[in-house]
Amino acid sequence: MENLIVEGSHGVYFVPYVNFNAETGECELAGESYLEDTVLFYNPLLEWLENYINKKREAIKFNIKLTYFNTSSSRCLLDILNLLKDYEDEGGEIIVNWYYDEEDMDMQEEIEDYEIDTGLHIHLIPDANLAKHEDEEMD
């Protein structure tokens, strides 16, 4: 199984950085998500995860380092988290880490809503570098 890598970009739309590793089961989704066609972007991510779950059936560590996502992206994130929850319910080993800026109260509420919505336990990891990183992207 191949790794799935998407270099994030910051142009007219914001493409998040994706690095799903088929060897280690470590998956990262970072940056900002505001896309021209949100479903078209997220479908391959969901397919990759379904494939990994069906073929490898090993542990997944899902690291989210998103600093911004619009509401269309938020629906797709929900699909990803629901998929991970289903796998966990079938006995799969899942760790979800969500790196966030402690000053960003809206994001903390958003993560809490995902926990309520999916029933997944999400590890909240404060990361002061996230906001800094976001500013650098524009230089």
Partner: peptide, 10 residues
């Protein structure tokens, strides 16, 4: 409002 959003998002 958060509850309403969660319902609509689902």
């Amino acid at each position: 409002l958060r509850e309403y959003k969660r319902v609509q998002r689902n």
